[in-house]
């Protein structure tokens, strides 16, 4: 029973990281209608920047995280402006392949800058873990911080999209780009802001991910990136609560699969669940049904 509880907690913690990454995917997809494959690699860059700031320039962890968020925001806006903006009118295949190219570019830049050897990433969260039920259930401080961060980000994003002017234009652009432009919304600026928010979240996700699973490599971001994308699709791409739900469910399924079925098969289980969900509900759990126009 206690072990189940502890697996569930680990699952929710991992799922919270997936949820934060999935937010970046889902917001970009909702507004620019493109899969930003490079998102997972922005996470990796964010983690590397934090790592360098803490261990090479001896900065306090909080400052390091802020710097990493700033760098990732700039990076996200740059990627959008250089690679995706010229392709607004292009087919989705062309944009997807460009995004894959961007993902490889970031991985290889990281490979050249930081080298191929895995770096061990000590947790930036210097808090002791909590022990409950006479020490049978130990909750790591990372778990608590991750879940709290997830909740704060969710609330902040929901408020942002519902209450602010920028949030309103985001919703407008995601509904109908052309009509939004006619209403005087700056579509390009809105898309850039979306990328900026998504990339800043990716930096936070990178730090949280590497604090829990402390190995940092140029390919660190790709698998969590793919899984977070799966989470976004699972929850219904384009929907912010969907990303949260999908991320947490996926994290729990992965950890429970690892614990009770087989470590080797845990990825297969995660992707299997995605396929089943898409077959039953092709727009994901909370996605809107889009009618086909002829």
């Amino acid at each position: 029973m206690v072990s189940l509880l502890s697996h569930l907690l680990n699952g929710i913690s991992l799922g919270s990281v997936y949820a934060i990454i999935a937010l970046g995917y889902t917001m970009v997809y909702g507004i620019a209608k493109m899969l930003n494959f490079a998102h997972g690699d922005v996470i990796m860059i964010g983690a590397y920047i934090t790592f360098s700031a803490v261990h090479m320039w001896n900065m306090p962890p909080v400052l390091a995280v802020v710097i990493s968020m700033v760098v990732c925001t700039v990076l996200g806006v740059l990627i959008e402006g250089l690679a995706y903006k010229p392709l607004r009118q292009a087919t989705s295949l062309a944009v997807l392949i460009t995004a894959i190219g961007m993902s490889y570019l970031l991985q290889n830049i990281a490979l050249l800058v930081w080298g191929p050897n895995p770096k061990s990433f000590p947790s930036v969260i210097g808090l002791p873990s909590i022990s409950l039920l006479d020490g049978q259930l130990i909750i790591a401080a990372e778990t608590i911080v991750t879940v709290l961060a997830n909740i704060v980000i969710m609330i902040a994003l929901t408020l942002f999209t519902n209450k602010t002017k920028m949030g309103k234009s985001m919703r407008g652009v995601s509904e109908d780009k052309g009509a939004a432009q006619l209403m005087g919304i700056n579509v390009n600026l809105t898309i850039s802001v979306t990328f900026a928010i998504g990339s800043a979240l990716a930096a936070i996700a990178g730090v949280l991910l590497c604090s829990t699973y402390p190995v940092l490599m140029p390919t660190t971001g790709s698998m969590p990136g793919i899984k977070a994308f799966t989470a976004a699709v699972f929850g219904g791409i384009g929907s912010i609560p969907g990303a949260m739900l999908g991320g947490i469910l996926l994290g729990v399924i992965e950890i429970l699969g690892k614990a009770y079925v087989s470590t080797e098969l845990s990825d297969a289980i995660v992707f299997g669940v995605l396929i089943i969900v898409l077959l039953v509900k092709p727009t994901g759990l909370l996605g809107k049904k889009v009618h086909e126009k002829v």
Binding site: P86, A94, I100, G101
Partner: peptide, 18 residues
Amino acid sequence: MLVYAIVLIVVMLASNSP
């Protein structure tokens, strides 16, 4: 792979950007 990535992006941009 770095060259691959750059070539891929440039080709996609060149063939699709208006």
